[in-house]
Design a protein around this nucleic acid. Structure first.
Length: 728
RNA sequence: GGGCGUUUAGCUCAGUGGUAGAGCGUUUCAUUGACAUUGAAAAGGUCGCAGGUUCAAUCCCUGCAACGCCCACCA
């Protein structure tokens, strides 16, 4: 027996085991010898959600690796050609935000860098260096978790081949009329100086004063007093009797700077029950008002922009000669509002103030800054007109008709609900860290292409793509990028089997992959979507840096081993359901690793009985039959994505049946001098068989300790447990 | 305003149309031979509440309550 067994199991050997696996080449599907079983003709593939290369892995990544590795290792042992393609995401906006925080700590900002000549390139290069450093750090961590993915095919979202595909898709969308550039009201973050998609807006309920302002004969309620300088009309409901005589007229209004005139229009959208039933229309700074303006373009003036990109009053275009207004010039919104309220109070223009008015405020999901709606030219993907037919409906249909299954099933309802109410997607970002939108402008002309057109006068688009536009093409783009002349991976592995990710990015990512995947290839990108839940802390609180309750998975791996962490994250957790992280649970499974180690130690004290041993007792035959049943149960659960159940069945069998009962009974037989050799040999045969079967069924969950034991067996069928045949 | 999820042992959570499960915790006992990162045993749950379907419901249906989450252009 190997001397290592005289000591407790030492999980620090995980690193060495991983290295030998990786060097063996068995992570790569082309090095696997498919088994002869009929299942082996259908490959198994997973594209790993590429972690953001801007920091360390969090527990969510550990869940992702654990779940995907279970499937991949299981199917590999079934003799199926198995591809698990890893990647890394440049994560445009997210990474730029992380990088800017770093700059802030260093006492500078991106604007300092952008001021210099060639500042844009400089900033890009700095973020690139930062990202690449984090990328290799993160890849190392994915290895530590035991991910048996094919590193030779690792793909980065900024690889030239990925960008080529993204450009090709963009061109196709543009040619099909599914991409358009238009000036519309969009969400603008005054801190980050970029627009955000509707998904990147978080709403928070706040209490603000609601001012009842006198507009001549009308009083109307508003929170945003400061936008009054951008008013172009007042709207009332068409059936509102109170305003019957005023509709369509221009009324004269006493304002801060003397008298002005404003038109009364009607719009179905106005709720007569709110406030006074009259609403000021400020199309440049409010999405609702912009919508009203669009319906009344012919009657009223266009958007008057009176707040700038930094969230400061910018009144010179309309009020340069009016000192009473220009005194607010340059004030931040909140300050301007306060002063205007005060001034209007003094002039008797405010009828009353409702001080505890509750309403939802739109915030930047990253920094919490109040978003300022702005009217800007942006690139959009049409999802409401032609795009609804060509992008949205095919995706809905794929899930409705079962070509794509979402696990857990209830998430399908959530998916449908979002898809059926989807809006056009703003894919423009005004940041540097991202894939540039391949477009050129000359006056109103637009040219789509990577390279500048020959003729004079074209200027390059400066917006970059929303990261999700490129990652939304990930399954297709990666397989295409990694294909070689000998291996068309799209042909071999697309559609992939499973897309495993967190439910929090169902809309951001999964929905878009389905739409774009079908659009690009005519085929669904994956057959099953498995959505894991969020990992919260021990007290069910969301982990966050500010709360200081973030669990570092790598610290846990260091202390208890990746096997223990993986088991703790798998058992007791179900798809789509949040889980809480308890270190005590990890400790329990660390103990299990050692238990298994010692079980092996005991078995290996016994002589190994050759394969052609024929005198298995009837009782032992039952034991061997039973382990096959258990293994089938584990397999069935894995195939049905019930990883918690699968892990628990294996765990329970190995510890509480094999160890506690069978080993104890066989121990008695082996020590009893009155029992004949044949029966002892039968017991020894059983012990060796059960050990091997236990290692196999636990390997997808706890790859390291099972491999460590396998490598110390006197006779091995395969070079690695990782490529042992699951069956026999 | 819509939609979704959860409610099971002290805690964190799995699970099933037919005497209820795991991890941790608690109590008692055992132990120099595989393992104290151990073993044997025990306590502990009218499976949120109220109806219904069924021979049988924790599980299916209806309603309710509490908690949580997502979506939504009411100023």
């Amino acid at each position: 027996m190997n001397e290592d067994f005289l000591k407790p199991y030492d999980h620090s050997q995980e690193k060495d085991i991983y290295n030998t696996w990786e060097k063996s080449g068995f992570f790569n599907p082309e090095n696997l010898t498919p088994s002869s079983s009929s299942r082996a003709t259908h490959p198994f593939s997973i594209i790993m959600p590429p972690p953001n290369a801007n920091g360390s892995l969090h527990v969510g990544h550990a869940v992702m690796v654990a779940v995907e590795d279970v499937m991949v290792r299981y199917w590999r042992m079934r003799g199926v050609p198995t591809l698990w393609l890893p990647g890394a995401d440049h994560a445009g906006f997210e990474t730029q935000v992380v990088f800017e925080k770093k700059l802030e700590k260093e006492g500078t900002s991106r604007f300092e860098i952008l001021k210099q000549d060639g500042g844009r390139e400089e900033l890009y290069n700095q973020i690139k260096a930062f990202t690449l450093a984090n990328k290799s750090h993160m890849e190392h961590q994915v290895r530590q978790l035991g991910a048996s993915c094919d590193w030779s095919k690792e793909t980065f979202t900024l690889d030239p081949k990925i960008i080529d595909t993204v450009y090709e898709t963009f061109k196709k969308l543009y040619d099909d009329g599914l991409v358009y550039r238009d000036t519309r009201i969009v969400n603008w973050c005054t801190k980050h100086q970029t627009t955000l998609s509707d998904l990147e807006v978080k709403y928070e309920e706040r209490v603000d004063p609601l001012y009842y302002v006198k507009y001549g004969p009308i009083t109307l309620a508003t929170v945003r007093l400061e936008t009054k300088f951008g008013d172009t009309a007042i709207a009332v409901h068409p059936n509102d009797a109170r305003y019957k005589n005023l509709i369509g007229k221009e009324i004269e209004v006493e304002a801060i700077a003397g008298k002005t005139k404003i038109k009364i229009i009607t719009d179905e959208h106005v709720d007569p029950a709110f406030g006074t039933g009259a609403v000021k229309v400020t199309p440049a700074h409010d999405a609702d008002d912009y919508a009203i303006w669009q319906r009344h373009k012919d009657e009223i003036g266009g958007p008057k922009e009176i707040i700038d990109q930094f969230g400061r009053m910018s009144l010179a275009s309309y009020f340069a000669d009016t000192a009473d207004v220009m005194k607010y010039q340059g004030l931040k919104i909140a300050e301007a509002r306060k002063q205007i309220a005060q001034d209007m109070q003094e002039k008797g223009l405010i009828e009353k103030v409702d001080t505890d008015y509750k309403h939802n405020v739109a915030l930047c999901y990253k920094c919490g800054t109040v978003l300022e709606p702005r009217v800007l030219p942006q690139w959009f993907i049409d999802l409401t007109k032609e795009g609804n037919k060509k992008l949205v409906q095919p995706a809905i249909n794929a899930v409705k008709n079962g070509s794509i299954k979402i696990v857990p099933e209830f998430q399908e309802k959530i998916f449908f609900h979002w898809m059926e109410n989807i809006r056009d997607w703003n894919i423009s970002r005004q940041i540097v860290w991202g894939i540039p939108i391949p477009a050129w402008h000359k006056g109103k002309e637009v040219y789509i292409g990577k390279n500048k057109p020959e003729e004079e006068g074209w200027t390059q688009e400066t917006d970059v793509f929303d990261t999700w536009f490129s990652s939304g093409q990930w399954p297709t783009a990666t397989l295409r990028a990694q294909s070689t002349s000998g291996h068309d991976l799209l042909e071999e592995f697309y559609p992939t089997n499973v897309m495993e990710t967190g439910y929090d990015i169902l809309f951001f990512w999964v929905a878009r992959m389905i739409m774009l995947g079908i659009y690009m290839t005519g085929k669904i990108p994956f057959k099953t979507v498995y959505l894991h839940g969020l990992v919260r802390d021990k007290d069910k609180q969301k982990m966050s840096k500010s709360k200081g309750n973030v669990v570092d998975p790598m610290g846990i791996v260091e202390q208890y081993g990746a096997d223990a962490l993986r088991m703790a994250l798998l058992v007791g957790n179900s798809p789509g359901q949040d889980a809480s992280f308890d270190e005590a649970k990890v400790k329990g499974y660390r103990n299990f690793s050692n238990k298994l180690w010692n079980m092996a130690r005991f078995v290996l004290t016994q002589p190994e009985i050759s394969n052609d041993f024929l005198h298995v007792s009837d009782e032992d035959k039952k034991i061997l039959e039973r382990v096959r049943e258990v293994k089938k149960e584990v397999a069935g659960n894995i195939e049905k994505y019930r990883f918690s159940q699968a892990g628990e069945v294996a765990y329970h069998y190995v510890w509480h049946e094999f160890a506690d009962k069978i080993i104890e009974e066989k121990k008695k037989i082996l020590l009893d001098k009155d029992i004949n050799e044949s029966e002892k040999e039968s017991a020894q045969k059983v012990l060796y068989t059960l050990l091997l079967e236990s290692l196999k069924m636990l390997h997808p969950f706890m790859p390291f300790v099972t491999e460590a034991i396998y490598q110390r067996l006197p006779h091995k069928n395969a070079k690695f447990l990782m490529v042992e045949n699951w069956e026999e």
